[in-house]
Nucleic acid binder design. Structure first.
Lengths: 133, 133
DNA sequence: CAGGATCCACACGGATACTG
DNA sequence: CAGTATCCGTGTGGATCCTG
């Protein structure tokens, strides 16, 4: 069996009836992955290197960055290009599929940005009601 | 402190600089939540009762359904209406905010549905390459 | 520089039993 | 019916050290 680190975060249909609903869910759960979305957004402007992404995201461990990029690569959303130089250099770039996904994702991010105050307000109100009960 | 069950799934900004990026991420992570998306989709057609949702989703535990609905309620995406009858009845319904969110989410779901074969294909190819290494 | 390998903690989620 | 309460396994992610 391959080392745990190189295996990819799964996100597979649950081998359960209602399969297409599950299949869609398995795609959506990649979007659900907090890091994946951020990476996709960052790659829209063009290819990036590993540590470059690590710096831009800020707060991600190299483990999670590796795992996230592997997952995106597995789904055909990102290409991984290795330059056999010293020191090594690896570029990550969105595929056409990835760029296609980026559009709805951007729309969602846009919505999240615009309505974030309302959501934060709702959360505060909810928490307040629940603290003083 | 309140019992663990009634507390809500967090999803808070990480109290870290780069706050607005994180805030958006905290909104997106609700979308990332597999169950939340499904629930939102199911509520588009109108209000639903607890067990009704449970049956429609299929495979969710009542614990996760409760937690998910609480989270959505907390974010102001869903309203919870209790009818003090016997047996008790609780309706869940999207708010305007929730219906607003449903639009980009549907767009994303649409994309996921359309491109699901390509993604599955990419996964298979990737896994194949990685199995015979 | 771009990761792989390991250890470890804890949050998440399932199963079950109980209640107004 | 619509939840709580509790126990408990495991997956997920962070920290750290190591390599080509």
């Amino acid at each position: 069996m391959k080392p745990e680190h190189t295996r990819v975060p799964a996100i597979q249909p649950l081998a359960h009836e209602g399969a297409d609903c599950r299949a869609v869910a398995s795609v959506l759960s990649r979007v659900g992955d907090k890091w994946s979305v951020l990476i996709i957004m960052l790659l829209i402007d063009g290819p990036r290197r590993f540590n470059e992404l690590k710096r831009m995201v800020g707060g991600i461990s190299q483990r999670m960055l590796t795992l996230t990029l592997r997952g995106l690569e597995r789904d055909g959303l990102v290409t991984r290009t290795v330059f056999p130089t010293i020191p090594p250099r690896v570029d990550y770039e969105l595929t056409d599929l990835g760029r296609g996904l980026a559009q709805p994702v951007k729309a969602l991010g846009q919505w999240a940005f615009e309505h974030q105050p309302q959501i934060q307000g709702a959360r505060d109100k909810f928490d307040e009601r629940n603290d003083k009960d």
